[in-house]
Design a protein around this nucleic acid. Structure first.
Lengths: 131, 131
DNA sequence: CCTACTCTTGCGCCATGACACAAATGAACA
DNA sequence: TGTTCATTTGTGTCATGGCGCAAGAGTAGG
């Protein structure tokens, strides 16, 4: 049984004391990076392209100024979502596929682990979980 | 074989045209809700507690005014992360465990699916994927 | 070196959002 | 009905953040 038998705290305040994987995985800085329409568009564009792309190239995906795109990409890189690489005078950004998806899955697992048995309202979420 | 054999577009602009699951799953509104320090704290607190909690109760988890907590919780509910239920004069919020975790996993899958074979840099991400 | 090219940075403008405090709503209960 | 309790909503203030434009930094080529 991987099922923990820690007693559940009664109040949210007590619960807040308990260390839990969600504390680290629910990173506001990461989600802030994904919380902008333009940035999400750039990210989706880059993900669907599936290869490192130059800043100028990526900028053609949306109608904002190149300088704005540059800033957004740098921010996404700082948040760990993208990886930058420089070659000559062109800077390319690529999605950190593995890091991002494994972070998201770890968070999903951590959230599920918080859910008391029987109150799980979506059974498609049992994938990846040790039951 | 679930492996698609769609040719990959060369430019990000072309890639942006192609419909892809990430387009819907990368929802800025959802991530904006998770992109605030206080809100994330409330959410983590509520998740770790694992049961519906009253607003006043949850407010004790952080040092901001009760009215601020009320607004944050309403926002998280609007974003689909929490569910509100009223009983008498107390309003309780609970984490929508199944919805949230399955959304995150679906996004992780969609992102992985964008990743060209062989460039996956984190092999722990192969869980849940049809290879 | 001077120019062209790619990207980044400085700056000002405006919109959004987080916060505290106070007032209002709404439900239970004497 | 009037009071009390739990929560929401109104309002003003301040900080953050996205944007365009212009200038700067770094690289390649004549």
């Amino acid at each position: 049984m991987t099922q923990m038998n820690k007693r559940r705290p009664t109040t949210p305040k007590q619960a807040a004391m308990r260390r839990n994987p969600v504390d680290d995985l629910l990173d506001p800085e990461l989600f802030k990076a994904l919380g902008d329409k333009t940035r999400v568009r750039l990210l989706g564009c880059l993900a669907k392209c599936g290869r490192p792309c130059a800043v100028g190239e990526i900028a053609q995906c949306c109608s904002v100024d190149l300088s704005v795109v540059s800033r957004h990409l740098a921010l996404l890189a700082r948040a760990g979502v993208l990886e930058a690489s420089k070659s000559g005078r062109t800077v390319s950004y690529a999605v950190r596929f593995g890091e991002v998806s494994s972070h998201l899955r770890a968070l999903a697992d951590a959230i599920d682990a918080c859910c008391p048995e029987g109150s799980r309202d979506d059974m498609s979420a049992t994938c990846c979980r040790p039951a």
